Simulated assay, not measured.
Amino acid sequence: MSAKSKIRVFIDNDEQPLADVFAPAVFELDTRKLTDGDHVLKIVSKDPSGKEGVRTIPFVVRNGPAIAVEGIKENDSVDGVVPLMINAYGKGDLKSFLISGSETPQSIPSWVWIIIISFVGWALYYFVRYLASPIASNL
């Protein structure tokens, strides 16, 4: 029997461990073998005296292309025709970054329109006041 704790690493509800090592251990989790979505990393450790400890770590895998949707959000209430803009783009690999398609065009938020319209209105007000002033009439 070893004087070190034994560590077993599981993914989700698999009966077969991904790793069966002694502490301290370095382990690389290859998420490319997992489907995109929610997963749970379960680590079971047994010390030399036989006591067992369990730790679970929920995580999300996103290896596939990123998907951006504009026009609807999670749990929105909608009716009628809903226009959607959908973009999907990959990350490339660790050596190169895919620039093509990696930026999702988005509509201009309403608060930006309000600021632009307010500024243009303010500028027109002062322009009209300038034209109506005695200084402009002398030109």
Rank of each mutant, 00 (worst) to 15 (best):
P24Q: 04
V40E: 14
E15T: 06
Q106K: 14
V60F: 08
T56K: 14
E28C: 04
P105Y: 03
K73E: 15
T104A: 14
F97G: 03
D93F: 09
V69I: 15
V81K: 09
D76G: 01
D38L: 08
S45E: 15
D47W: 01
A3W: 06
F97N: 04
G121S: 15
S100R: 07
E28Y: 10
G90V: 03
E74Y: 07
G121R: 02
I7A: 06
Y125V: 10
Y125A: 09
I72V: 11
I43W: 00
D20Y: 06
T35W: 05
I72P: 03
A88Y: 07
S2Q: 08
I72D: 05
V26Y: 08
V81S: 12
L98D: 09
T35C: 08
F97W: 14
A66G: 06
K42M: 07
I57L: 14
I57C: 06
A136N: 12
K42A: 12
S5T: 09
W111G: 04
R32I: 02
G71A: 08
S96K: 08
T56I: 09
V44Y: 00
F22T: 15
K33S: 09
L98W: 07
E52M: 14
S96Q: 14
W122S: 15
S100G: 05
A88D: 06
V81W: 05
A25Y: 00
R8W: 02
A88G: 14
S2V: 05
Y130L: 14
S110I: 07
T35E: 12
S2L: 11
V54T: 11
G50R: 04
S137M: 10
N138I: 11
